[in-house]
Write a protein that binds this DNA or RNA. Sequence first.
DNA 1: TCAAAAGTGTTCTTATTACACCCATGG
DNA 2: CCATGGGTGTAATAAGAACACTTTTGA
Lengths: 231, 231
Amino acid sequence: MSEVESFFKSAFSVDNVIFGFDEGDLKVLLIQRGAAPYKGKWALPGDLVYPNEDLDTAAARVLEQLTGLRNVYLEQVKTFGAVDRHPLGRVITIAYYSLIKISDYAVTPASFAQSAKWHSVSKVSELAFDHNEILDSCLKRLKRKVRMSPVGFELLPPKFTLTELQHLYESVLNPVNGLDKRNFRKKILSMNLLVELTESQAGVAHRPAKLYQFDQDKYEEFVAEGFSFDI
Amino acid sequence: MSEVESFFKSAFSVDNVIFGFDEGDLKVLLIQRGAAPYKGKWALPGDLVYPNEDLDTAAARVLEQLTGLRNVYLEQVKTFGAVDRHPLGRVITIAYYSLIKISDYAVTPASFAQSAKWHSVSKVSELAFDHNEILDSCLKRLKRKVRMSPVGFELLPPKFTLTELQHLYESVLNPVNGLDKRNFRKKILSMNLLVELTESQAGVAHRPAKLYQFDQDKYEEFVAEGFSFDI
DNA sequence: TCAAAAGTGTTCTTATTACACCCATGG
DNA sequence: CCATGGGTGTAATAAGAACACTTTTGA
């Protein structure tokens, strides 16, 4: 095999860490592998990048095949390319994470998604390939991102309570003693990013919480400017 | 050509944005291309990744071939993979940046480095491929990094004055009105990261500045913990 | 009437900003 | 003796952290 040929005995894939938030807990969508290598193991959804496909497009495709969702928050994180990371050859992978609203996620259209399942990020055990390392990188990136920009809202349903929002931040950031309720509310509300609805929670065995939406225009302004959101 | 074959008609490279600091100005090391495509254009140094080479190793190799330097600060930034980014085929590239001390940089050992030259980052014009975009991403990343961690020191000679350090921060961050001298010094010195030497500048037509080194142990502690260095 | 979570302000401490003059040297 | 950049402190403001009780609802 010539040297030039050997350069081309390689391929690249994308892997997508799909985050969701449910039951007060940060979740990640994993699939159970149906074929070797790592048959039966849980893994991140991913695929080889098609020859005529941009990287971001490939990541969005993997996401859509699995969840049916488009136009979702998606960010490239890091490329993993250890020589021996894939047992069948030289395959480097470009890792992405996405943030989806579990409330929008209905069924799993893709054939390879038969065994897709949400896992609590804090309870993920050994994954196929170097996927634990990839998950760690993406989680670390999400932690930083969530402090710099209000992307946390991408994970919440359209209407939410301040306590739900606080739990989201706590489950992502994992601060040792939780976040202070009064300081959290003061800070969030001072940003003028939330719109208080006239509705409240109903059917709860305690004082019902007010529901909020976020202000789409303000939100996009913040995302564009990438301002500091130090919680 | 079968589909599987077509997946393997692709390759990946690394490109390295090598930053230096000299004459109060942030610089980037570019090479002039000697062959098509983009013959004669300035470009980032880079190379295809060898089949048995990790990505970080490839980036370090490119750096060493060009500058003779090892053990240099090197960070992966982003992977660029637009379908048409390379005129000769599907080549994605993993972008890195490195920080070197221009005082350590002597000659250019590699053959392809005949035409390597430092360019002021603020004056870089049109580069080959998508290299302007890559440079922008790396510069943006450096701006953020320099606020989170004291990596700026990687760019300075072993002994430096506080004014040189301030100019470095100014040339990276480009704040509209410069940085306040007193506040900058107060902040830097309060970190206990610097060791004041007994030496001073000599031969300058004004009051000579004290020279400082940084405290290696404290520095490594900070780099490891990635603390906040808000200038 | 009880349990459970929602909601609400003030004080203290710390970090950030703004700002102007004298000093040491070489030419 | 002059031009040049080096070096220094204080006051005002803003941001963050700590902290405890009352309210509303369903069971």
